[in-house]
Design a protein around this nucleic acid. Structure first.
Lengths: 222, 222
DNA sequence: GTCTATAATTAGATAGAC
DNA sequence: GTCTATCTAATTATAGAC
């Protein structure tokens, strides 16, 4: 009995390990080539596994995709920890508080986009066409973020602090401006000659976005 | 002899017509699914043609892709007509002139992105991974645009008119902020409930971006 | 759980009749 | 120029030995 329990625990650990590694490999491939362009063989090869192992550990290519996306959005959620709560509860009516929270959202999002370009890569790959994967991803992951940022932006606009971007469009202005240089990092390296994911450039980028989005923040947001 | 000439001219017209229609169909497919995800069968079916006709009119799937991209960037070039010239010649040293030119570049780019989302869709699909297609597209089409905007931005920055975005990053801030809502229009429709390509929203978007990018333009840029 | 073999589709490209 | 038939290669998924 004890031996059985030990065995179960060990195999579970091993399986979780290969599952995790497959998820990471899948994110890179899906991000670089899109769902159709990515091949399960290439994903498996990336970690030295064989293609049928994907169908063993996941129900299908699509199930692998969903699990990988869940995995990454969970990481984004952890990155944003503490911010969404304070805003959505309406506990902070102070405008300067909201300003600081929004600036911190932008900074953390920029850093996350630089470290995990796969997330925004997958989003642009998927969102160019209606599909089951797209609606699933919107409802489950994107809409909560959109619904969090929009009311914050509305208050900053009313306070005269934010740039004159409509609250329905600001999500795309922010995400697009923040992430494109990382989504298209292979292009950006060739075009600009810099390494955009270098910490120095990431902070420069985040600072610039915050200042641009909140031009009238009292005393700046540095 | 006369008959031969007439015949040549007629067939050439027909061929140009189907070539053009294949290019348009290809842009939609490549934009929606990426190079690997798009199938030549689906492209041909879109105009009621058969798949082998693509290999008759074009050398290969990749040649079709290149021709389609050339086709679309030529259209972008016509859209920007008059602007690049005035700036690159340095004929306008007046800062208010440069400000107006930059604002017009932004507005025309936003309108183009709304009417032809395929261009930026193809760019994000390709630029997520190094490839021959990517370097070809950068050198031939993207670099000239980057090299045009960058010095303009530098002058606007020095004049204190532009938002504090580094001149090496502004290309991605501008393109990302301007195009994402159209690149991901299928998502944006579901998420925002608006039709972002409607003229009213396009102009709202363009106005917002200009104001955000040039917060200190004397007297505004309306 | 892993690995080989393979089934079932689908892809881009080509040959040849018309 | 068009259209049918087909070739070769690559895909996801499954079966079954180990």
């Amino acid at each position: 009995m004890m031996q059985a329990r030990r065995k179960v625990r060990r195999t579970r650990t091993v399986r979780d390990d290969i599952r995790e590694r497959l998820l990471d490999a899948a994110l890179v491939e899906f991000g670089a080539k899109g769902f159709d362009g990515a091949s399960t063989r290439a994903i498996a090869r990336r970690i030295g596994a064989h293609q049928p192992q994907i169908n063993y550990h996941f129900e299908s290519k699509e199930a692998l995709w969903s699990a990988a996306v869940d995995h990454l959005f969970a990481e984004l959620g952890r990155t944003m920890q503490g911010l969404a709560v304070r805003v959505s509860r309406g506990a902070s009516t102070d405008v300067s508080e909201i300003t600081a929270v929004f600036a911190e959202i932008v900074r953390r999002f920029v850093r996350f986009a630089a470290r995990h370009p796969e997330l925004n890569q997958i989003m642009v790959h998927e969102a160019t066409e209606k599909s089951g994967r797209l609606t699933w991803m919107i409802e489950r992951h994107v809409k909560p973020l959109y619904d969090t940022v929009r009311p914050v932006w509305r208050r900053l606009r009313k306070a005269g602090i934010a740039a004159p971007i409509d609250e329905r469009l600001v999500h795309y202005v922010l995400v697009g401006a923040a992430s494109l240089v990382y989504v298209n990092a292979p292009e950006a390296r060739l075009l600009t000659g810099i390494e955009p994911t270098h910490e120095r450039w990431v902070e420069t980028h985040a600072d610039g976005l915050v200042a641009m989005l909140l031009p009238n923040a009292p005393g700046g947001v540095a």
